[in-house]
Nucleic acid binder design. Structure first.
Lengths: 195, 195
DNA sequence: CTTAAGGCGTACACCATTGTTCGAGAAAAG
DNA sequence: CTTTTCTCGAACAATGGTGTACGCCTTAAG
């Protein structure tokens, strides 16, 4: 329908592609080095079938990355970043945390496949919102200015990643982590009363 | 000399073992999956020579782990943890940061070789000091109590790890990171003035 | 129902890595 | 100098992963 040059894929083929992508996202989010065999098995298809849809492991990882990026970008785009920087950051963190926890190590898998330039562009696109919000918070006196912005961004990312690890370890629940990430990051960004 | 049961190793053999361990620590701290070949090459010895001293890759990683653990334990044991919890935490963080940055990913390599029980014991030994200090700080009203201790420990670890990544990325210098880690962690642990 | 697209298992080539063996040669120890 | 230990390269088997070729079978599509 879309293009008549390519013979429309059969229904089960489309279903399998979806299964493969779903399984790949789930497994790559835990272990970036998972084998194609395991992904195919988890998707309920044969390894050869997987290769019928994705010419190589790299292509699969790339497809997964694109899917994760699109999903992430869409979710973050819906966040209201206006108003008090602290409140906006709280909202942004809540959404970002869910995404980080859900996709986790996919980034690591992607870093081995995508070119550094592609990685930079993706990271840029996702970090842009946080970056802009941190800048605004600093300008408006809500966030401390005695640290580099890049450091503050790195801290946010580190806390998110650490929260994901803590949940996987069973130290805290996902719901608790939502609150803890927010409070911890806001405390780290807040202007010190002793200054 | 030490024991007459074993024939004393030759001088160059001892030197080579040291070279191998040094190279292994350096390489494993960057890439936990580095090959034996690369380690041997970096140490300036043949791969077979390496296998002459360490029966397997796992044995090498274990030896490296033990060396790192001993070095870490000794360095942290020299820290004065008395006095104001904030000051003590600052001192502890400074030392821990240097170790984290120096050894980094060795932990990841070790996790694939050491048994979970061994890993737990090692982690316990290293986290014990931080844990005790956080507890004391909470009891004395210096650190906030509206977060689980395990979360606060996870946060500290996350910031340290993130700092190491930031330095490797070139976002901040090692010296800056020392100060930033301290200030960020203390801000995250501090009791909120708004509460 | 007929047909073609897709699924699936087996088997194979290929590559990197681990771990071993052998023998010649260099170097330390006495 | 002699002996013993160690180094080192080359070669080999084993493993585990990626990617391909082939043939049979299932299933969607018309």
């Amino acid at each position: 329908m879309a293009a008549e040059g390519v013979t429309a894929k059969r229904a089960d083929a489309r279903r399998n592609v979806e299964s493969i992508l779903d399984a790949a996202v789930a497994l790559l989010a835990i272990d970036p080095g998972v084998s194609v065999n395991e992904i195919a098995k988890a998707a309920g298809v044969g390894r050869v079938t997987l290769y019928g849809h994705f010419p190589s492991r790299a292509a699969l990882v790339e497809a997964v990355s694109l899917r994760v990026i699109a999903s992430t970008d869409q979710a973050l785009g819906a966040i209201d970043l206006e108003g008090d920087p602290r409140d906006a950051m709280a909202r942004l963190l809540e959404a970002t945390w869910r995404l980080t926890h859900r996709f986790g190590a996919v980034v690591i898998a992607a870093s081995g496949v995508l070119t550094p330039e592609e990685m930079r562009r993706v990271h840029e696109g996702l970090a842009r919102r946080v970056h802009a919000l941190v800048e605004r918070g600093r300008d408006e006196g809500a966030f401390r200015r005695d640290m580099p912005v890049v450091w503050q961004l790195a801290t946010i990312q580190a806390v998110l990643h650490g929260a994901s690890a803590a949940v996987h370890r069973g130290d805290v629940t996902t719901d608790d982590a939502t609150r803890l990430v927010r409070d911890t990051v806001l405390a780290a960004l807040a202007v010190t009363s002793s200054a």
